[in-house]
Amino acid sequence: MDGQPKPRPSGSKLAYLPGAESITRIDPWWGLVVLVVGLTVTLVTVRADPFWRILLFVRDGVAVTALITVSAFVFTLIAGMIGGLGRLSRNPVIHGVATLYVEIVRGIPLLVQLIWWYFAFPVVVQGIGRWLNIAAIANYQANAIVTAVIGLTVCYGAYMSEIYRAGIQSVPKDQAEAARSLGMTHFQSMRHVILPQAVRMVLPPVGNELIALLKDSCLVSVVAVADLTRRGREFMAVHFNPIEVWTMVALLYLIMTLFLARLVSWVEKKTHFER
């Protein structure tokens, strides 16, 4: 990479001095961002046809992808918390339901789940509406984006449940003991002592899930959602230039994931605490 100062070898004696850290470790992320954004801008300016036209065409797909990813992520965080607590519950019914949920969802490929949600779910809802005799439900028409978000939430929620469960279990037992011995109820000790620590501990895997979710969101292109991938396909169907289209789409996904990864590590740094 031209124009980048060479990183000092980590075995350097100077590496041990205070303040040396910022010099000895060049953040590779910046290098990658410069490369990717630079490449994209170069393509779009030097070969405006077709790259600029592709970019203009797919940009609303970028918005849809972002919307789906963010919404699914927010709901997944909630679903994961519920599922994780369910998996830790001593109540056999709650524990059973949560375990069933996790095992079933983790056993079916995401694409199949998304297709099921798109085709089967509305039929189920309509059936319930007819049985309950409520016209509004019986006439339910699937909104592709809504069913896509539901499908993604249900699937990623299962993985998130296991992450939460592991996080809660990894908080040392003495923290809960100390909280309870002060007279806090189970709920209070969870809310003020255990969960705050568990959440910080699971930020790395949760961040990973968010980035995976962004990439897996491309599967919704198969179930009638006009996301980035689908817009790319639409452009290609008309103009027959797969190499340019998919290069552009790939670069756009890469830019999104790079910035998302950066956001995740920023959040991790902000909330990190030493034990």
Partner: peptide
């Protein structure tokens, strides 16, 4: 009842 533990058990966060 106040309890003091061998490992202190202060809330780390």
């Amino acid at each position: 009842i106040g309890m003091v533990f061998q490992s202190f058990s202060l809330f780390a966060h």
